[in-house]
Design a protein around this nucleic acid. Structure first.
Lengths: 96, 96
DNA sequence: CGTATATTTAGATGGTAGGCTAAATATCAA
DNA sequence: TTGATATTTAGCCTACCATCTAAATATACG
């Protein structure tokens, strides 16, 4: 089940959206991702946490590195939720 | 043109999402909207401001009231942006 | 005009979020 | 085991945000 609250919160930050955009092109280790950002690894790690708690990404240890990847399943769900949210059903303007 | 930064920020708050959901069913005055929320009108007014600066809603004075409505055009643009954002193009996982 | 109604603006406040540095944890390689 | 590398956790600080109350603005009505 989709926790929209967490998802929206995760999406609200530009750094996190950029992380997602990068992961859309394939999995990356924390260090590889960090190379694209001007902020500390510690701060990025915090962002990974937020994205993970929204279930938008997954992590897997590979040797010394931790590799992040999109959770494509949830991404699909989010896409649907967005579609639902933005699908406008015109009634009339119910104003007095 | 779409200011995604403002749009995401606007969408980040549950109260604002609820306002949008209400306006999806038709235009409403500030007072009518307020009836559905437990917070002060002043606070809601702040939310209208955020939604307006994201260009998601419009306002129009009608007598003593101010009537809010969805900006359907921008809503369409946001829908497209979301679709773009969530359309996953699989490459391979580019990890070492 | 003067008063009531509808809404916004201003200013204050508590909480949360994102950034940093330093310390802790985990894995690898001698 | 010791040291190097990769990443996270902890603690701190500043800025922003949602909310509130009180005051200001705008319209309507007598």
């Amino acid at each position: 089940m989709l926790r929209s609250e967490q998802v929206f919160r995760a999406l609200a930050d530009p750094t996190r959206r950029r992380i997602l955009a990068i992961l859309k092109t394939g999995s990356r280790s924390a260090g590889e991702i960090a190379a694209d950002f001007p902020i500390s690894m510690a701060s990025l790690s915090h962002h990974y946490g937020v994205l993970k708690s929204a279930d938008l990404i997954r992590s897997e240890r590979r040797g010394q590195s931790i590799v992040y990847s999109l959770n494509t399943t949830v991404f699909e769900d989010v896409a649907s939720a967005m579609a639902e949210m933005f699908h406008i059903e015109r009634t009339d303007g119910g104003t007095s």
